[in-house]
Nucleic acid binder design. Structure first.
Lengths: 181, 181
DNA sequence: CGACACATGTAACACGTTACATGATTTG
DNA sequence: CAAATCATGTAACGTGTTACATGTGTCG
């Protein structure tokens, strides 16, 4: 739920037409965005009463602007801090792999580390010319560096941990026995 | 695309029935998972020829096991390193906010920092009793610490950067003029 | 004219996620 | 019996994402 809010926030700083909105998004973040997604998102924002048509400009472009509700939501989004909430796919994968007795944990960790290092090198080579791009790149670098540290920690955790216990007693159907404690 | 692969990988280590699969996922990752999603995902995996029914167990539970293709995919997923590819929502948001002349960047960064710190404290209080949970928690902590460092960097970047240039010349319709250079 | 880029959609799909419906079974 | 829990689904929705269709205007 990032594209949706971002487009809304951009519109909140001036009406735009579809493909202009895409250009603004890319210019202001350095990220790429499929044009089609702009129109899809605009349609959904309109459905939710957050944006509305604002006529046509000199050259016939269809302009969009946020509604009152849209402005409110944009303001809220910008003002309130947001934390990544989704699943950390990489962490979950490694955590899962550790529970597999036949998995080559060291190999997996080594491969992961190599991939992270490579990505980090690439991100370090890249120069964020624009401010926005620099910020996004810095975030990527910081996260990748954190990944490296974390991988070391995983190595430590798995080193002095007992092998993962296999699940033995499966629950039975029906209401389980009440603990007699 | 983490739940899908995770469930497949778990099945690759022994046939399971639906709600058992959920239990295994939660036990092995420490993350929560809505049961319904297991059945949804199993249906999609079956549609894609990656899992198949494996009869019933003693108690009448419907068992699932991976097909040959499913085993291959699970093995590939575990063996190959994976990097987070999606958009970094927080980074994009901050990058975007920086381009808004009316935005209170310092306030936003401060709020963000406070939220990250709070989350970090919470993650530090938590004890990962199980190995898997400890790994996931460590990843969260590492990432949040990286966020703090990154926020400092953003402060630096925005400090000695010129205000974001507003876009002036919009592209015209049709083929653009060839550069005369 | 024809290539090309701008511009606007639309249709389709992926994955994640939740809410709800429905039985079966066991325990108090 | 009734409540609680296990178990199996299903229907619906949300965001993200791509591929494709189509028109229009400009430049060489």
């Amino acid at each position: 739920m990032s594209v949706r809010q971002s487009l809304l926030a951009i519109l909140d700083h001036g009406a735009c037409y579809g493909s202009q909105l895409r250009a603004e998004y890319e210019r202001r973040t350095g990220a790429r965005l499929n044009v089609g997604q702009v129109y899809t998102t605009l349609e959904r924002l309109e459905r939710d009463g957050l944006v509305e048509g604002a006529g046509v400009d000199d050259e016939g472009h269809l302009l969009w602007r946020p509604t009152a509700a849209g402005r409110a939501e944009a303001a809220t989004w910008i003002a309130h801090a947001s934390l990544a909430e989704g699943r950390d796919e990489v962490a979950l994968k490694i955590a899962l792999a550790v529970t597999f007795p036949d998995a080559d944990i060291h190999g997996i960790l080594a491969a992961q580390r190599a991939a992270v290092r490579e990505a980090l090198d690439a991100a370090t080579r890249d120069e964020g010319d624009a401010v926005s791009a620099a910020i996004v790149l810095a975030a990527r670098r910081a996260r990748l560096e954190a990944d490296l540290r974390w991988l070391d920690e995983v190595e430590r955790i798995t080193a002095d941990a007992e092998p993962f216990a296999l699940s033995e007693d499966r629950p039975r159907r029906g209401r389980p026995a009440r603990s007699t404690v």
